[in-house]
Nucleic acid binder design. Structure first.
Lengths: 155, 155
DNA sequence: CAAGATTGAACCTTCAATCTTC
DNA sequence: GAAGATTGAAGGTTCAATCTTG
């Protein structure tokens, strides 16, 4: 079934994981230093701020982040302690809940965003051509579609 | 300095991090199930097996993985408890040490590798054209060169 | 019994402090 | 004092178990 990876494949495979890991670490350090938010905090705040009323069901937020429920639940608990989000009950479905952006959460996000974008732009987009940006978008969209289509070892 | 990210940039940026995270999770689950190794274990074993005599200095291994010393030290301690690696003193420089692959470690790697490669091939390379593989390799090589050149927030 | 969500324990990662040798 | 490496504590992530409502 398999065969080894050839040199070009190794370069692409190792490059993909390494690049993402290093960019994530870079961005995490920058966020922590500039705003006290972790990258995970930031990633949670963004979809909440993009939701019309600043609130999402945990399962929807988890899906938006590709996070497990448990991870989200623990993380939201920590963010709640710091006042960045709140929990609310759901009237329609009493098993359910909402994660709600607080004004402190929105302010933290607004404070963090400009420097965050600047670092991403400098580290990534200043170094790539427009064609490369599009190619990267196409490649990752293809791979994500495959990952979500085939439950391989997924689930 | 900044300006917001446009749609294409967002697609590439979010796609890169998301794809790498999901592939890492997929591969981790597969390794855990098939061989009991974590992805981190696997990542440590590979450079050791590629070193001629199965031993590397911690600082060199850390550099090969882009890991902090502390993370490596903790991880090696856990792998040592499970018999996958050993520690050895370094005669040349008595501050130093070696991490050494054990035969159990090499066997675990050999057992894990075929299924691991198969999953990577199925999830990634079966879905991309040869040109896309090369483009991905070029893009990530460019970005890694930038990351290692500019100590931005790096350090 | 399944879906939405949380919890506790175990494991992993980071940060700052430490220890030894150069 | 700096380099190589380790340690302990705090915070983050995963896994399995649990609780409640549909």
């Amino acid at each position: 079934v398999a065969q080894w990876l050839d040199e070009r494949e190794q370069r692409a495979w190792r490059g993909l994981l390494r690049t993402a890991a290093e960019l994530d670490a870079l961005v995490s350090r920058e966020l922590q230093a500039s705003s006290g938010l972790s990258k995970a905090d930031y990633d949670v705040l963004v979809p909440l701020s993009e939701a019309g009323d600043g609130r999402l069901r945990p399962y929807a937020l988890g899906a938006a982040l590709s996070w497990e429920q448990s991870r989200l639940s623990h993380h939201v608990a920590r963010m709640q302690r710091r006042g960045l989000v709140e929990r609310e009950e759901c009237r329609d479905d009493r098993r359910g809940a909402f994660v709600v952006l607080t004004s402190a959460g929105r302010e933290a996000l607004d404070r963090a965003a400009p420097a965050h974008v600047a670092v991403v732009r400098e580290a990534v987009f200043d170094g790539l051509t427009a064609d490369q940006v599009d190619a990267l978008g196409d490649i990752t969209a293809t791979l994500l579609a495959r990952l979500h289509a085939t439950p391989l070892e997924d689930t």
